[in-house]
Every structure is written in structure tokens, then in C-alpha cells.
């Protein structure tokens, strides 16, 4: 990897953009939710406040939520690429973004309770590397707040409550159950990422990977595409609404993926993403320069 400063600059810019502005598809989903809440003045009050906040953050170049979240980086690199140098440049970019106020000091030592100055620590940021045939480095960043992360859930089917058997109807019940348990605590209206199958660890990872999908896409697996639509429709009837204060905008989206599983296990894993759904991506050239912004 050559030109380390340029890599660091590009990665810093990725973090800055992710922190201060929502991707267009998410903001659009919030506007559509507002339009649908025509009869509920309280739900409208919250959604208008949320949208005003999005504009405010963009205009003032400040983090759109003060919980700048867990930093989930996913890299797609050319074969043989030096990922050690890439993660070092990313850590340096994270430290810089923290110093400049685009990230809060948001990383705590789990044993001593000490707060890290730069958000660089064992386990932070979170990296995932994959190799591919392309000549560019594809970087995706999701910033996921703690309040929404706390609302995640994993079910081992069959599961008596909510009466879920090992089929897609069981998956529907689990997801609706998780959304009902979350109420407004994950900063509704949110998006749920779901993984059917996998093991306990890969289930959570694949559920979060669903957040890389655009709001307007549909699963290529037709049964899952239908299930996503069905759960989204069901969720409007729960009445939880923005911040759990009532309304039809309980969810903005449902994204479901599936992994193979062992015969003995059938996990359904639900990851909750708040309305402050910060997701950005960038394609970087061989020298670390920006080729194209994604989303």
C-alpha cells in the first residue's frame, strides 16, 4: 500500500460524511414516513424534529447523533492487498475524527471502565476484510448507536414465546416479537436486519450485513422479499410509532438474509438499527484516492 497519508485522508472523509449526514435513501424513507402520518400530530412532531435534526447536522457539519456508535468497517480489497497497513490507516483516521469532534469519545475499557481518548482500542473499530478480483478497495462504514444495538435479539427455534416453529412464519413471529419488545427504545422508526440460520456469532454478523443494502432494494430470494414486505406491513399496525410514542411509523424497513445452518440449530437473529442509520461507502484507487462515493 503506497501513499499512506492519502489513504488516511480518504478514510477520515468517509468517517466525517458518515457521521454528519444520512444516506439519501434513509432520509427519503423518513420523509415518506412523515407523509403517511398525516393524522397523527404527535408522530409528525417527532418525525419533523428528526428531519430538522438531519438538516441541522448537515448544515453545521456536526455528528447527527451524539452516540457516534460502534464503527463497523467492511473492506473489499484486491487479492494480496496489505490489510495491516489499511487497518493502521483506518485507526489513524478514527483517532483524527475523534480529535476533531466527528466522533465522540465513545469507547470504554470493559474491565477498568476507563474511556479511550481516540476510539482506538482492542475491538474498536470493528474490521471485516474480504478479497476480490477488483483493482479498487471498496470500503463501507456503518455507525451503529448503542441504544439500538441493545435492542438486538436472537431466537433459537422452535421457540414457545412467540410461538415460532422452524419455518418462515416462525421468522415473522420472531421479528415482530423483537420489534414489540424494543418499543421506542432503539430510536424508532428503525430498520431491522435479520439473519435466518448461521450460528450465534455469524447470525448477528449477517443480520448487520443487511444494513449495507439500500432501503429500496428487495431480497433476490422471492420468498424473503415477500416476507420483508409482510413484516413491514404488519409492523405499521403495532402502533409503536416514532420514539415509541404512538403512530404507524414503527419501522422504515425490513432486510432479511439467510445462512446455512446445522440440522440441530435454527437461529433467527434480529439486529435493530435506529432512524439515525449512518451508512456510507467509497471506492478507493491504488493510491488511496477517492474514485467514487457509494450510496
Amino acid at each position: 500500500m503506497t501513499g499512506r497519508p492519502q489513504w488516511e485522508d480518504s478514510l477520515f472523509e468517509l468517517i466525517r460524511r458518515t457521521s454528519v449526514d444520512l444516506p439519501g435513501d434513509v432520509e427519503e424513507a423518513l420523509r415518506r414516513a412523515l407523509a403517511r402520518e398525516e393524522k397523527d400530530a404527535r408522530a409528525r412532531w417527532f418525525l419533523e424534529g428528526i428531519l430538522a435534526n438531519v438538516e441541522h447536522a448537515r448544515r453545521t457539519d456536526t455528528p447527527l447523533c451524539q452516540d457516534t456508535g460502534a464503527l463497523l468497517f467492511r473492506f473489499h480489497v484486491p487479492v494480496g492487498f496489505d490489510t495491516n497497513a489499511l487497518s493502521a490507516a483506518t485507526r489513524a483516521a478514527v483517532a483524527r475524527a475523534t480529535r476533531l469532534g466527528y466522533l465522540r469519545q465513545n469507547t470504554v475499557d470493559s474491565v477498568s471502565g476507563a474511556v479511550y481518548q481516540t476510539n482506538v482500542a482492542h475491538g474498536s473499530p470493528v474490521f471485516c476484510f474480504e478479497q476480490g478480483a477488483r483493482d479498487t478497495v471498496d470500503v463501507r462504514l456503518i455507525m451503529k448507536g448503542g441504544g439500538s444495538e441493545n435492542m438486538g435479539a436472537q431466537y433459537s427455534l422452535p421457540c414457545a414465546d412467540p410461538g415460532a416453529e422452524r419455518n418462515l412464519e416462525g421468522v415473522r413471529r420472531c421479528v415482530l416479537d423483537a420489534v414489540t419488545r424494543a418499543q421506542g427504545n432503539g430510536c424508532a422508526p428503525g430498520v431491522v436486519g435479520v439473519c435466518i440460520g448461521g450460528d450465534r456469532a455469524s447470525g448477528h454478523e449477517h443480520a448487520k450485513e443487511q444494513f449495507l443494502r439500500r432501503m429500496d432494494d428487495r431480497s433476490r430470494v422471492k420468498a424473503l422479499a415477500r416476507l420483508e414486505q409482510r413484516i413491514l406491513r404488519d409492523a405499521t399496525r403495532l402502533g409503536i410509532g416514532p420514539m415509541g410514542m404512538g403512530g404507524i411509523a414503527t419501522l422504515l424497513g425490513v432486510k432479511i438474509g439467510a445462512l446455512s445452518r446445522l440440522p440441530a440449530s435454527f437461529f433467527v437473529t434480529v439486529s435493530y438499527m435506529c432512524w439515525a442509520f449512518r451508512r456510507r461507502g467509497v471506492l478507493l484507487g491504488r493510491n488511496g484516492g477517492v474514485q467514487r462515493w457509494l450510496y
Binding site: N53, T60, G145
Partner: peptide, 11 residues
Amino acid sequence: QTIGGAGPMLA
């Protein structure tokens, strides 16, 4: 209850 996540606007 205030508006969750609306950090800068509330600031």
C-alpha cells in the same frame, strides 16, 4: 421524552 438521536438540533 425528547427526540432521540437528534443531537445537534437539540444542542
